[in-house]
């Protein structure tokens, strides 16, 4: 479980997060949603230590992550996997080398054991047989899946995904969502996803945090979305007339 406690973050004179408190639960896909500029990416970067909070705490279990030295932070980071918006695959390495990189760096496995693990991860993301391709030779959706494979290769306890569906068609988005959700349940990990995608919210939103102007505006799960009276949530989720009509047809509101 990860807890963000009274997190504040400022850049220059601008306060992006204004005392945000929320919890990301283990074994669930935790979604951070909100309009552009709400502070989602900043919150995600604070959670993985790429940014330091101005005040407040990021707690991994009982450990105050934001107070750790760089060295101790690295120990926790080895339990973290992250899928970046642009996949962040090393473009001069093949798919196999990309996924193998954390194994090479942090384990003493034999070549065969590493290859087996890489192949397992590739199979898990339905990309078996693509070992020797370079990131530039595969599609955007495949790159995301390679990114997922790389992020789970060390069997992390925490998985962070920054806009995993951006730039993907609806069907591939769904595939990525299902993949992340299945992995979360299979491995009983804490997954945190920063997304704009409303399909993701309704499909895999086990725990959803809506951010608005740097504050937590609503928290709940996908089943609570339809019945919620929260104006900000309604405004965000049912932004288009089409979705408003769908909702009316479903719950009569």
């Amino acid at each position: 479980m990860i807890r963000a406690v009274n997190i504040k973050k400022s850049f220059g004179g601008t306060e992006v997060l204004k005392g945000l408190t929320t919890t990301f639960e283990k074994g669930k896909t935790n979604l951070i949603i909100g309009r552009s500029g709400a502070g989602k990416t900043v919150l995600l970067k604070l959670c993985v230590g790429l940014l330091a909070p101005t005040s407040g705490e990021i707690m991994y279990g009982d450990t105050n992550f934001s107070q750790l030295s760089k060295r101790d932070m690295r120990a926790i980071r080895m339990e973290i996997g992250m899928l970046f918006q642009g996949s962040a695959l090393f473009d001069s390495m093949t798919v196999e080398e990309n996924i193998r990189f954390p194994l090479d760096m942090f384990t003493n496995k034999t070549k065969k054991e590493k290859l087996d693990r890489v192949n397992y991860c590739l199979e898990r993301v339905q990309l078996e047989g693509n070992n020797s391709k370079f990131p530039g030779e595969v599609s955007g959706g495949m790159q995301k899946r390679v990114g997922i494979a790389r992020s789970i290769v060390l069997e992390p306890k925490y998985l962070f995904c920054d806009e995993p569906n951006s730039g993907l068609d609806p069907k591939t988005s769904l595939l990525i969502d299902e993949l992340i959700h299945d992995i979360t349940i299979e491995q009983n990990i804490t997954t945190v996803i920063n997304t704009h995608d409303m399909n993701s919210v309704m499909e895999i939103g086990d725990n959803i945090a809506l951010l608005h102007q740097g504050r937590l505006a609503w928290q709940g799960n996908k089943d609570m979305v339809m019945d919620s009276d929260n104006e900000l949530l309604e405004e965000f989720i049912f932004a288009s007339p089409f979705l408003q009509r769908l909702r009316k047809a479903a719950v009569g509101k």
Partner: peptide, 10 residues
């Protein structure tokens, strides 16, 4: 973001 990716790996 390759550097960020490596940092997060530890």
């Amino acid at each position: 973001e390759h550097i960020d990716a490596m940092e997060i790996m530890g």
